[in-house]
Simulated assay, not measured.
Amino acid sequence: MPVSASYFQSYSVVGVLAVVGVLFVAVAFGANRLLRPVVPTPEKMLTYECGVDPVGEGWAHTQVRYYVYAFLYVIFAVDSIFLFPWATVFANAQFGAATLVEMFIFLGFLAIGLLYAYKKGVLTWT
């Protein structure tokens, strides 16, 4: 068997699986459309939002401070994501000093972000 035939045969398996997957989804959607009851009522046509009937206008005000809390969470999440691999590399004798310097630079950037949040008054609990 030539090399090109086995090469394309491996892709044919992927192609057959893709076609089977698309057919499975199409059959599932078709069966759903044929078997579901279709009885539209005015209550079914209402907008459903968390179990509460829609009353008033659809505009909702969001406090900006929630985005700031999310930003602070991202700062600490990124910090923890980088601290765990750093701790495993730091144990290696070859990389000890270099990883220590890199981590202090990284923690410095995080400290700058935290200092900025403190100066803006985000970290005050009022």
Results as ranks from 00 to 15, higher is better:
18 A>L: 14
99 T>S: 12
56 G>H: 02
119 K>W: 07
120 K>N: 09
118 Y>S: 12
53 D>Q: 12
31 A>L: 15
19 V>E: 04
66 Y>S: 06
28 A>P: 02
126 T>I: 10
114 L>E: 04
46 L>G: 02
120 K>P: 01
50 C>G: 14
24 F>V: 12
7 Y>W: 10
116 Y>H: 12
86 W>C: 01
91 A>I: 15
111 A>S: 13
14 V>H: 06
37 P>V: 04
13 V>T: 08
5 A>E: 07
119 K>D: 05
14 V>I: 11
125 W>A: 08
16 V>N: 03
35 L>V: 03
46 L>M: 12
92 N>S: 08
68 V>W: 11
57 E>M: 04
25 V>N: 02
54 P>R: 14
27 V>E: 01
34 L>A: 10
45 M>Q: 09
99 T>H: 04
108 G>M: 00
102 E>K: 06
78 V>E: 11
109 F>A: 15
72 L>T: 03
74 V>K: 10
95 F>A: 13
91 A>P: 01
109 F>D: 03
50 C>R: 13
2 P>A: 05
47 T>R: 12
9 Q>E: 10
53 D>Y: 07
33 R>L: 09
24 F>C: 10
85 P>V: 00
102 E>P: 01
74 V>T: 13
75 I>A: 09
66 Y>Q: 07
36 R>L: 06
11 Y>H: 08
39 V>W: 06
29 F>H: 06
46 L>F: 05
109 F>R: 04
113 G>E: 01
60 A>S: 11
63 Q>W: 08
59 W>T: 06
85 P>L: 01
85 P>Y: 00
17 L>A: 14
120 K>C: 11
92 N>I: 10
32 N>E: 05
104 F>A: 14
104 F>D: 02
67 Y>K: 11
81 I>P: 00
71 F>R: 14
121 G>M: 00
9 Q>H: 08
59 W>S: 04
97 A>N: 09
115 L>S: 04
57 E>T: 12
65 R>Q: 07
88 T>P: 00
59 W>L: 11
74 V>A: 15
112 I>H: 01
46 L>Y: 06
60 A>R: 13
101 V>Q: 04
54 P>Y: 09
44 K>C: 03
13 V>R: 05
13 V>L: 09
33 R>C: 02
100 L>P: 00
65 R>L: 07
119 K>Q: 13
83 L>G: 01
117 A>R: 00
62 T>M: 11
8 F>M: 06
117 A>T: 00
64 V>E: 11
17 L>G: 06
109 F>Q: 07
95 F>Q: 07
114 L>R: 03
109 F>K: 03
100 L>Y: 03
22 V>T: 11
97 A>V: 11
2 P>K: 07
118 Y>A: 15
120 K>E: 14
35 L>R: 05
36 R>M: 11
89 V>F: 08
1 M>R: 08
